[in-house]
Amino acid sequence: MDNIPVRQHRTLTINILRHNPADGDSQPRLQAFEVDETDAMTLFIALNVIREEQDPTLTFDFVCRAGICGSCGMIINGRPGLACRTLTRDLPDEFTLLPLPGFELIADLSVNTGKWMRGMAERLETWVHASDLAGVDLDQMEQPMDPHLAEQIYELERCIECGCCIAACGTAQMRDDFVGAVGLNQVTRFRLDPRDQRDDSDFYQLVGDDSGVFGCMTLLGCEDMCPKDLPLATQIAFLRRRMVAV
């Protein structure tokens, strides 16, 4: 082999929603950008190329560019996903990027998932509840946890709060007060935690209605679109059975 075959690179046409709610004159519109595709190009790279070479005002969020921080969720050709984990080679020559629906729009592709997630966490009280927390001696060794249980909790703790499951959920799109798979998953995570002293009737107070687990209509968009592959369908069905048994 004396010459390595070079792949024909495509020119991508990327239609991006442009809108800045803070600017009173701004009207939502789609703007098309052309980008030369490179090997192993992710949407993260493509968007940075556009911002550096074509339009410095283009707004979008990135921090980790490795699927960990959860800030780059957007609608990629109709479906939610992480831009930093989406390869352009899996997309057609022309595609559309929209901000995640259901969250406050900051500008263009940037949405305020943090505000939504904070509201959800306060509403579902997603922290360890124990009566003697103030008396805990921080210098003492923590109680050891069964490794299997620790693993189970870790599995649910992997959620990066990217908001893809909210954008993927028909229920959440219809009803603004629905806590979504991200919220229901976090409740099952604290329910597993032996340090949390709440019981099922406490959890029922938090999710036992149509804005909680009974609102979920098992459309499984969350299960299929979660970029971290969390076991959402299993957790929601489990929580539903527990809450009915209270």
């Binding site: 609608i75 109709g78 479906r79 993927a168 098992t218 459309l219 499984l220 968009g221 299929d224």
Partner: peptide, 8 residues
Amino acid sequence: SAMRHLDT
């Protein structure tokens, strides 16, 4: 229509 997701 955007999702093209069978279960939805």
